[in-house]
């Protein structure tokens, strides 16, 4: 393997891992505050459509990111209304949210897109590849990847090295204790979900703005759920969770390379690789204990 091939491999890993990293952070922060965010897939879809549509209409990729943030916040509010204010079951609401989001994004995509022509957004944020990437490795990485890496470190520092981070985690361990110490549990969780929605939508945006510049029905193809698995594998630690996103990205990049090099083995075995890696990783990690309150509706005052 030449240096060039190694660099291209690195870029492929980062491209695949960036959307996962954003979503994993979103899920992790929500679960640390005691809310299961199964709706990550739907939020990601909403963000990816909002981002690429806005970017195509305004020809400005950064405005696409802004649109994803806004839409992500709205999805967070909707989910919050369901699982925090009502409160409905978090798993069922999350699944319902995902189904609704898939239908809604497909519908909006169908009625808004110019007939007969695919969406192609501006290339500002794209992660370069191939000959274009030969100049400079660091400059070939999408700005959104840097954002994801910085946010990961910030999330770790916030959760484990600051006072508000401690309160945040206590909310995920015992909502009653947090309430007793004067926190407004519902309001805090609403805020958490808005932030979580924004991060998941950014994950979607990095898929459609930094990787492929287009949209199609269900473009996320379950990547949100892989991010969910990454959080469990990463034991609710932002650094480990994002590391497992990178591992999954490496599996995906490796799968294609193995197929391209050719060895006479059925290509579907290679395509299985990332999923087998995820499964193995989760299995090998053994039993992980998550935030105690995650998944439990808070019924107190």
């Amino acid at each position: 393997m030449t240096d060039q091939a190694v660099l291209q491999f690195g870029l492929a890993v980062l491209r695949a891992a960036t959307p996962l990293a954003f979503c994993a952070l979103g899920v992790l922060l929500a679960e640390r505050a005691g809310v299961l965010n199964i709706a990550v897939e739907g939020m990601m879809l909403c963000g990816s459509l909002a981002a690429v549509l806005t970017a195509v209409l305004t020809q400005n990729a950064w405005l696409g990111v802004v649109a994803a943030v806004v839409v992500g916040a709205v999805t967070g509010l909707v989910l919050g209304a369901l699982v925090v204010l009502l409160p409905a079951d978090q798993v069922v609401s999350g699944i319902a949210f995902n189904i609704t989001a898939q239908g809604l994004t497909s519908f909006i995509y169908k009625i808004t897109v110019i007939r007969g022509v695919q969406l192609i957004g501006p290339a500002t944020l794209i992660s370069l590849a191939g000959p274009a990437a030969r100049g400079n490795f660091l400059a070939s990485i999408s700005p959104l990847t840097y954002v994801a890496l910085v946010l990961t470190c910030l999330a770790w520092v916030f959760l484990f090295r600051t006072g508000p981070g401690l309160l945040w985690r206590s909310l995920g361990e015992s909502a009653r204790a947090s309430h007793a110490s004067g926190m407004n549990v519902r309001r805090a969780r609403m805020a958490v979900l808005v932030l979580s929605g924004v991060l998941c939508a950014l994950g979607g945006a990095s898929l459609t703005l930094a990787w492929v510049r287009s949209f199609t029905d269900n473009i996320t193809m379950g990547r949100g759920f892989i991010a969910l698995a990454a959080v469990y594998f990463g034991r609710w630690n932002p650094l480990l969770a994002v590391l497992s996103c990178l591992l999954f990205g490496a599996g995906e990049a490796l799968a294609f390379r193995a197929q391209a090099l050719g060895s006479g083995i059925n290509p579907f075995y290679y395509l299985m690789l990332p999923y087998v890696l995820t499964l193995l990783a989760v299995g090998l990690m053994g039993r992980a204990v998550g935030p105690k309150e995650a998944g439990k509706p808070y019924l107190g005052g």
Partner: peptide, 14 residues
């Protein structure tokens, strides 16, 4: 349907 996957495959061929 997986757009990113197809993108990576084509890029490898290039």
């Amino acid at each position: 349907v997986d757009i990113p996957k197809h993108r990576e495959i084509t890029e490898l061929q290039i």
